[in-house]
Design a protein around this nucleic acid. Sequence first.
DNA 1: GTCTGTGAAGAGTTTCACAGCT
DNA 2: AGCTGTGAAACTCTTCACAGAC
Lengths: 214, 214
Amino acid sequence: MKSFRIPEATITRLSFYSRFLVRLDRRGIVTVSSGEIAEGVGVSPAQVRKDLAYFGEFGTRGIGYNVKDLMHYTMKILNLNQSWPLALAGAGNLGTFLCTYRNFRDRGFIITGVFDNDLTKIGKKIEDLTVQPLEDMPGVIKQSGINVGLVAVPSRAAQEVVDLMIKSGIKAILNFASVAVSVPDGVKLRNVDMSVALEVLTFRLASRKAARGN
Amino acid sequence: MKSFRIPEATITRLSFYSRFLVRLDRRGIVTVSSGEIAEGVGVSPAQVRKDLAYFGEFGTRGIGYNVKDLMHYTMKILNLNQSWPLALAGAGNLGTFLCTYRNFRDRGFIITGVFDNDLTKIGKKIEDLTVQPLEDMPGVIKQSGINVGLVAVPSRAAQEVVDLMIKSGIKAILNFASVAVSVPDGVKLRNVDMSVALEVLTFRLASRKAARGN
DNA sequence: GTCTGTGAAGAGTTTCACAGCT
DNA sequence: AGCTGTGAAACTCTTCACAGAC
């Protein structure tokens, strides 16, 4: 544990390394080299070593890394050795899907409350959850000590919901609405927009004739 | 139109600029400055100007940019002045959600075929689509001239489905499975993993006590 | 005065290449 | 011999700051 500001990209890759190590561990593999990790997640071996070096010395020269140990280290760095309760605003198609999304549960993210202000949705059962009125959200967040919120409401309602979450004590927000929302200092925010990813893809696709590959 | 290799990040931002401009245009706003765009999408004004400069000179000094014109330019750069048919593999929770995802349609991405090899899913109606057997996918892709594929199958099946798509003539793939898949040169690939975004968030959340904010 | 377009400086990230340990 | 950990070099991306156009 040494450095100060760790690159965003390093954290993202750490998350991939961690998943890859879980898979190796399940297959009973004991030792792995930076080259094998690199191969498995699609980066360079030096990158893997540099990324890990931000957090300590986890390997053995001449040998590589112990899979179980490194898996635990990466999980610990990402704070995945605990489970994270989540508050979800929005019970439409996206919200409903997120409740069923296994990747969240597999990594310790548990949706604990679903909220909407649409009367036709309140009371609806999604998996083992019941959609609650939005005005109950602050109480539930405070009572359950939830720190992380998911915003899956229409764009026009996003800022309002974000404000309400922050007032309720939420410290980090994953925003699925395709609009920039503002948060005060100290609150972490990330946006996820699946169609942005598609647009990058179609841009590259069409420019492949003009410029060279990729 | 001048530069050669345009940064990934520039394309991503262009996609945000484009959305923001659509919104301005709907509100009847005629002119916008780089500063206002910057404010609206959360980047610096110089960044906005640099990004646009990769593709040409779209503004007027002393005035700013014409909203309608710049909107059209950005759409054209991203190849969104056409509609893109998509092939979707996987009709589970994620696949079903993607069929209903309005952000895709709004930007011209139309899911044209849904495929699965689960007999309990084949024949199921999702919106106006019917789930077809996976073995029919190559035929549909070729016949409809589909270039872009969405992979929403379980991780273990991802590589197999990707290979099938490529054999069928798909040139770009958006992979939602949380596993690295490999594609030959010339095929574009992007991965989307919503829980990675959450993990970056929880990392920052927990390290805020140790280091300084964000 | 306002705001764009851009070369140059600055900051940040990745790759190289090798010393050092097993 | 094999593989990690790491300074230094190379590269990429962002910000600065100002000339030029309105």
